[in-house]
Design a protein around this nucleic acid. Structure first.
Length: 619
RNA sequence: GCUCCCGUAGUUCAAUGGAUAGAACAGGACUCUUCUAAGGUCUUGAUGAGGGUUCGAUUCCCCCCGGGAGCACCA
């Protein structure tokens, strides 16, 4: 690399270095001073402890409280809570049904019960009737006391997770496909943080590679500086599409593009300057999108950040017998597990994505010392990550670090993959614009929002619906892009959740109750009472929030949180239709109900926040 | 050709190997003199086909049929 080019790149990296330093400092600080809410302080933990103690008492010794599967039984079962004993059946050398019956009888007969009232064994399940008043008081008290912290736990405290998500490509529009990586990644980052991890959010921008050879070629031959300056992303994208059309006819163009990229990588100062220009305008555009969705990153380390001298790494991989020079001079990896042959370096000496990714991995490892690294990237790159992980493993680089590719299906158009090259990519900005316009129409016609707040409300409702549509589903299957579906604001979308929150806030406002007085009232669990079963069921649902967070984290599936939210809000709306809160006559019961509402609102807000969706107080 | 992913109600999606497979939209019947009806209640309706493992399979294995993606100088 020549000096001018080197300097230009070095200059560019300085901005990123500042972010890296700040993040390392933050990790250090969290290690020393971050405070956590112990998982053991939540209601469900008390119940778990009690059940586990009875299991041990009965003779099942290896039962860990936190691994007990506790669920609310299906509707046709008349019980508050159910625990299955199938997994203990073998160890106890008894049939599940018999085991459940015996343990249940043991529990019911014991005088040591606190949260449990009685138990019945059926078909391998132990169905519990719980001490409802005690549990109701405890849950509502906890939610009010912990507020925005409610749900957070310390299970993974001290662990570090690096998450690689969003990663749009420079000089290309931000497509609806990138939204998936962005919102799933952001949600996972929040979820990991909630269960105790320290998280590094990294936007691994696609700002390097042969495509820049193509783009620069196109710009130099057909580009008009003024036209590009007026509408950079669109025009650069047009040039890129044009290049791909022409190069289909003329193979030489692709060779030319590769040559240009090789020169760029060697630090040709003119080319580096062009690259930097493209990069700058793109980042500016992307930032608008991130602002709209409330997404933020700790570091934005694009691929260009990892352009270094790869000689040493390649030599090492060759010495370890993992890589070798193939026909024509390219560096290849052959016979790694059952993987097909793949390339690390091209014959002309320029690098490939996977090699830069190895370097990226080593940087993250040595800088942030993560326990886990998540790559939130579409499923079409599955093979590439298998290659990367296998390579790091074989070379002994990734010992003790869990690497996971969080993959997701493609957004298809007309049954096939969207393509920038073919110009079939649906621009996210267009979708966002339309859904906000639609939300505005609805808010203006049937909403209860002051005219000056309509725009802001519509913006939140619209962006939330887009985020939620992605986070609601966990499927690896592809999604056919459909405007109507994309713009859907019906129930079953985030609107239902936000509407529920609005209803609660409306009641709390109308009650005229001072929030502090309510908090003080809720400080004593014994003050908190209920009358209707729907109140207990609602409160008990709040006790499961941390469980949902844990499950979402362990499987890397944010949709667990969506499911939880939908169940919680449905439970509330059921309660709402049955009980008139403001007309409650007994003062203490009314206070309790308001405290319950406040608790539910808090959990809805916290759970939505994990999905990066804001609440609104009026709609 | 090889590898991977997906196939659930008319449609779009759920369901850590567990009890009677859940929602939403669409269809049918109710429900606002009552805290926001963007709500609530009831109702019609589904695991692509065939084998296997298991006390138990939408989930795991095999095979077939459909759809998609990937497979050396792209990322």
């Amino acid at each position: 690399m020549n000096d001018t080019g080197k300097n230009a790149l070095a200059e560019y990296k300085k901005i990123a270095d500042v972010q890296v330093e700040a993040t390392v400092a933050r990790l250090e600080k969290e290690k020393k001073t971050r405070s956590y809410i112990p998982q053991s302080s939540y209601t469900l933990s008390y119940i778990r402890e009690e059940v586990a103690a009875f299991f041990a008492d009965y003779g099942i010794t290896d039962c860990k409280p936190e691994s007990l599967k506790m669920l609310v039984p299906p509707a046709h079962i008349d019980a508050d809570l159910t625990v299955s004993v199938f997994e203990f059946s073998k160890m106890a050398k008894k049939a599940p049904a018999q085991l459940a019956t015996e343990i249940a009888a043991h529990i019911t007969g014991s005088a040591k019960k606190t949260y449990i009232v009685s138990a019945i064994g059926v078909n391998g399940y132990i169905n519990f009737t719980l001490n409802r008043p005690k549990i109701f008081g405890h849950v509502v008290h906890m939610a009010n006391a912990l507020g925005r912290g409610y749900g957070q736990i310390d299970t993974y405290k001290g662990k570090v997770m690096v998450i690689d998500y969003s990663a749009p490509n420079i000089a290309k529009p931000f497509g609806v496909g990138h939204l998936r990586s962005t919102v799933i990644g952001q949600a996972l980052a929040n979820i990991y943080e909630a269960v105790g991890y320290s998280v590094v959010r990294d936007n691994h921008l696609g700002d390097w590679g042969t495509q820049f050879g193509s783009l620069i070629y196109a710009y130099q031959h057909w580009g008009d500086e003024a036209v590009v300056a007026a509408n950079p992303i669109k025009e650069l994208n047009n040039l890129y599409i044009h290049f791909n059309e022409v190069s289909k006819e003329d193979e030489n163009l692709k060779a030319e593009a590769r040559k240009i990229f090789a020169r760029l990588e060697q630090g040709d100062s003119e080319l580096v300057a062009l690259w930097k220009k493209f990069s700058d305008v793109s980042l500016k555009e992307f930032q608008k999108t991130y602002d709209a969705f409330g997404v933020h990153f700790d570091v934005m380390l694009g691929e260009s950040y990892f352009v270094t001298d790869f000689t040493k790494l390649l030599t090492e991989l060759k010495d370890k017998g993992i890589a070798k020079v193939g026909d024509g001079g390219a560096v290849i990896v052959e016979g790694l597990g059952d993987l097909p042959i793949f390339l690390l370096q091209k014959a002309d000496g320029s690098t490939l994505y996977i090699l830069r990714d190895v370097v990226t991995f080593m940087f993250r490892r040595d800088t942030f010392h993560p326990d886990v690294i998540l790559y939130v990237v579409g499923s079409e790159q599955k093979l590439n990550f298998r290659e990367l992980f296998a390579l790091c493993d074989a070379a002994g680089y990734s010992k003790g670090i869990k690497l996971a590719h969080v993959d997701f299906g493609l957004v298809l158009i007309n049954g096939s993959k969207m393509s920038t090259r073919k110009g079939t990519l649906v621009n996210l900005d267009n979708v966002l614009e339309q859904i906000i316009a639609k939300a505005k129409e609805i808010v203006a016609s049937k909403g209860d929002v002051a005219p000056e707040h309509i725009d802001a409300t519509a913006k939140i409702i619209g962006t939330s619906a887009l985020i939620y549509a992605d986070l609601k589903q966990n499927r690896n299957s592809n999604i056919e892009f459909d405007w109507d579906k994309m713009l859907s604001l019906e129930s079953g979308s985030s609107v239902y959740l936000q509407y529920t929150y609005v209803r609660i806030m409306s009641i709390l406002t109308k009650s005229g109750v001072d929030i502090h007085a309510l908090d003080t009232f809720a400080t004593t669990p014994e003050n908190l009472i209920f009358e209707d079963v729907s109140e207990f069921r609602l409160a008990f649902k709040l006790a499961f929030f941390s469980d949902a967070l844990l499950r979402a984290m362990e499987n890397n599936t944010p949709n667990i949180i969506s499911i939880y939210l939908e169940e919680l809000t449905a439970e509330f709306n059921h309660f709402y239709s049955k009980v008139s809160i403001l007309k409650t006559e007994k003062a203490e019961l009314k206070q309790s109900r308001l405290a319950l509402l406040s608790a539910v609102a808090t959990v809805i807000q916290n759970a939505l926040a994990v999905l990066n969706i804001p609440v609104i107080t009026k709609m």
